[in-house]
Simulated assay, not measured.
Amino acid sequence: MKKKKFGSSALETDPLIFGGNVFGWTLNEKESFKILDELFEKGYHTIDTADVYSRWAEGNNGGESETIIGKWMKDKGVRDQISLHTKVGSDMGQGAKDISKSYILKAVEDSLKRLKTDYIDLYYTHWDDDKTPVEETLEAYQKLIKEGKVRHIGASNLSPSRLQDSLNAAKNSDLPKYEVFQQQYNLVERNDFEGDIKNICNENGVGVATYFSLASGFLTGKYRKEEDFEGKQRKDFVKKYLNRKGLEILDALDQISANHNVSNAGVALAWVINRPGVTAPIASATKSSHIKAFDEAISLDLSEDEMNKLNEVSK
């Protein structure tokens, strides 16, 4: 599988990143191991998670996803073959988001313990707390990089101004630079990335990973009427897309997927892969058929007319 580089950094990624938010949520440990085994055998070795995954599930406290990944890597002896991405800053029970230096230095130790490793390939600022000076956050990462506990840093969900301030601080104060930015981006949610964030990343050589690349499963086509998501754990994520625009996008995906004999998910992911400024989409899977869509997306050659059709219907 051909690797891609994040922006101007030395960090490489698979053309599609596996999202570990399902571990400990919609998949238990045994099911998670099965999916991880299949992904690894197929050559998908880039895994994205966060300390807060899957805290929202009943009975969970956070860290469940990291714990499952850590156990799997240790059992398989494959840590050195995995590009491991995780995040810090979400509310893990402290009552608020926190990207202060003291909090990051404590939280990283918890993540390393759960992941059963002594280093993280890519460590993200998950959310902004809107109060910590950007220099303080970057100083924490500088210490972790010098100690070898973190190799590269990224950010997610920052405002354009805070992202730019962070990049300026890195340049002007000899601090580590965010090399990757993670943002929601898919056929039904384009505005968060297109515009200022995209321009800032392009101008500063920052790679881009997209989350919710399948709009929480809506773009697979399995949610077309209200009864389709009743009782589903993703109901609150997908019901807002069940409107005229969403259905028109699904219709376009139906047509293009039929032309290529692939899944709607494969087409939707291929669209993200081929969008300007995107390094790699993040997507999750809970069964083998979902992983098949990853293979389809990587190999699918969408025509200019097909890309234009998807661009137009998703405006």
Results as ranks from 00 to 15, higher is better:
Ser299Met: 03
Arg55Asp: 05
Phe6Ile: 01
Trp25Thr: 03
Lys97Leu: 09
Glu179Leu: 02
Tyr103Phe: 12
Ala270Asn: 07
Ile256Tyr: 04
Val262Tyr: 12
Pro15Tyr: 00
Ile104Ser: 05
Gly70Ser: 08
Lys149Arg: 02
Asp301Thr: 14
Glu12Gln: 06
Lys101Gln: 13
Arg234Phe: 01
Tyr185Val: 01
Val78Gly: 05
Gly77Arg: 07
Gly63Lys: 01
Asp51Ser: 12
Lys239Trp: 11
Arg55Phe: 01
Phe18Cys: 14
Lys315Met: 10
Lys225Gln: 12
Lys74Ala: 09
Leu300Lys: 12
Asp91Phe: 09
Ala155Met: 02
Glu139His: 00
Val208His: 03
Glu306Pro: 15
Ser111Lys: 05
Thr67Gln: 12
His45Val: 11
Glu194Lys: 15
Asp128Pro: 14
Ser32Arg: 12
Phe212Gly: 03
Lys3Phe: 09
Lys106Arg: 12
Glu194Asn: 14
Glu136Phe: 08
Tyr141Ile: 04
Leu144Arg: 01
Ser54Cys: 12
Ile99Gln: 11
Glu38His: 09
Asp118Ser: 10
Gly63Leu: 07
Gly89Thr: 14
Lys76Trp: 08
Lys292Asn: 14
Phe237Asn: 09
Asn264His: 14
Gly43Lys: 04
Ile200Arg: 03
Gly277Ala: 11
Ala155Gly: 00
Ala170Lys: 00
Glu312Trp: 06
Asp174Phe: 03
Asn186Tyr: 05
Ala107Trp: 10
Val267Tyr: 09
Asn308Ala: 09
Gly20Asn: 13
Asp48Lys: 00
Ser156Asn: 04
Thr279Leu: 10
Thr279Arg: 10
Ala268Trp: 04
Ile69Thr: 03
Phe33Arg: 14
Gly207Phe: 15
Arg151Ile: 02
Ile82Ala: 14
Lys71Asn: 05
Lys225Arg: 05
Asn61Asp: 02
Tyr123Lys: 10
Asp80Val: 04
Ser173Ile: 00
Gly7Cys: 11
Lys34Gly: 05
Ile82Leu: 13
Trp56Thr: 00
Leu187Gly: 01
Glu66Tyr: 07
Leu310Arg: 07
Gly207Gln: 10
Glu12Ala: 03
Lys87Tyr: 03
Lys30His: 09
Gln81Arg: 15
Asp305Leu: 08
Arg79Val: 09
Asp48Trp: 05
Ser9Lys: 06
Thr125Ser: 13
Tyr123Leu: 11
His126Met: 15
Ala10Lys: 12
Asp75Asn: 13
Gln233Gly: 08
Thr46Ile: 07
Asp129Ile: 13
Lys106Asn: 12
Glu203His: 04
Asp130Arg: 15
Gly63Glu: 12
Ile47Tyr: 13
Gly59Gln: 03
Lys309Cys: 03
Asn61Leu: 02
Gln184Ala: 02
Lys30Gly: 02
Glu230Trp: 00
Ile256His: 06
Glu194Val: 14
Gln255Ala: 03
Gly277Gln: 11
Gly148Pro: 11
Lys177Ala: 08
Asn21Ala: 10
Trp271Tyr: 09
Ser173Gln: 02
Ile82Arg: 14
Lys146Pro: 00
